[in-house]
Design a protein around this nucleic acid. Structure first.
Lengths: 222, 222
DNA sequence: TCCTTATTGCGACTGATGTTGCGTTAAGAT
DNA sequence: ATCTTAACGCAACATCAGTCGCAATAAGGA
């Protein structure tokens, strides 16, 4: 990761700067190149999936030389990692349907639609995570962010009395969504429109049964 | 797939054979080459993961020429598909611990141990499924076989009264195992020794609640 | 044993991928 | 305006993946 990572300090110190720290030039041309390249990545990805995404194709479509892309992003994984980081500052919120099972079903529906229709962006990013450690890291950050935002789903369910207190939001969310990813991505099963609802219902039932509450008794010790 | 697939007929017909069907030579040298190559694939895979598995490396380690590997297996995906098919005729049986949750936990434990320790064989095969359609097909066959063998877990649970009748064995199995794959393979979370048991408990609780029984009432019609 | 030919070995070739050295452009500070 | 040098463009180079034509080997049947 040598793109971005601009330190916010060492701007006006003048004298006491580290001689081994070159000042980045992030304005003007560099910013324009970056924007062109990231746009080209997105366009090529929706056009031809992961397999159509080569460094050469990106450079050509961005109107930039191959070497520039190699030096700044190293490989396709680095490109996707940058795209993912740049697109993660969106305003996504989990759905609020009024019930735990409804929220989880709606979440699964989003996952289902992102994965069911052919070679989509999501599948390409996940596939990239198996090739590039940079893309894998960006994916982990992306998912961590999504899980943090989804914690409110569990909180609301606890308030409604649908779940025992102190239920593990992450485990519940994984239980609900993992079957959808597993069926469509790993097992490559034929898309079943009932899958989102059924996986959500399973996770919700397990949650109601207290599987994701670490302690079922009233004594938190031991 | 042009390796194996030896037709069992047209052995002694003599006169009426198809002129466009060349007789395969599966004995002696060809069999030895195949064994050497598949062994080399396994050794390289446990040594360096998927990224260390190139056709050239396989050929060199097997003491075989590159062209031979390209002609018989086409690419790395074809190699892995053949390895997977050759290794699938084992005598694997699902565990029988006496309870549904115990069986699912033991299954998840196997998955966990196959995925938790570094870049294992399983992860390499799954990663290959994202690159080669041949490897993806072999993986689908492998998983279908495993799921069929695991149906007995659900049957036994129904007999014991732990599950309602006509529970969907596949959906239950996916609900139990998917979180393990998802955490370790996609989310790349730190291995949690409690994960197999917890995921199994969640699926078992959902199963007990009747989520995987299509009809809860006693009337199977409509 | 001999004959046919499937299969393998060999080397040359093409194209894609990734690297390096060097000259040019322009960002940012003075 | 001027200077320093980070970032870019360019071309040559190196490496790897994959294919093709041809000769050598050996499997399987007569």
């Amino acid at each position: 990761m040598d793109a971005d990572a601009e330190a916010s300090e060492e701007t006006g110190h003048g004298e006491g700067r580290d001689p081994a720290a070159p000042r980045r030039r992030t304005g003007g041309r560099s910013a324009r190149v970056r924007a062109q390249v990231l746009a080209a990545v997105g366009e090529l990805l929706v056009a031809g999936g992961y397999d159509g995404l080569t460094v050469d194709a990106v450079a050509e479509r961005a109107g930039v030389h191959r070497t520039t892309v190699y030096r700044r992003w190293r490989d396709v994984g680095g490109l996707l990692a940058d795209v993912l980081d740049a697109a993660s500052d969106d305003t996504w919120r989990p759905p609020d349907t009024g019930s735990l099972e409804g929220d989880l079903t709606a979440l699964n529906q989003e996952v289902y639609e992102a994965l069911a229709g052919g070679p989509g962006l999501t599948a390409a990013l996940i596939a990239a995570g198996f090739r590039s450690s940079e893309a894998a890291g960006a994916l982990s950050r992306f998912w961590e962010d999504r899980h943090a935002r989804c914690a409110v789903v569990t909180d609301r369910a606890v308030e409604r009395g649908e779940l025992p207190a102190a239920s593990d939001a992450r485990a519940l969310l994984v239980a609900a969504t993992a079957p959808v990813y597993h069926e469509l991505l790993l097992l490559r099963a034929a898309p079943d429109p009932e899958l989102p609802r059924r996986a959500a219902a399973g996770a919700a039932a397990a949650g109601r049964a207290g599987v994701y509450a670490p302690l079922t008794g009233p004594f938190p010790s031991a």
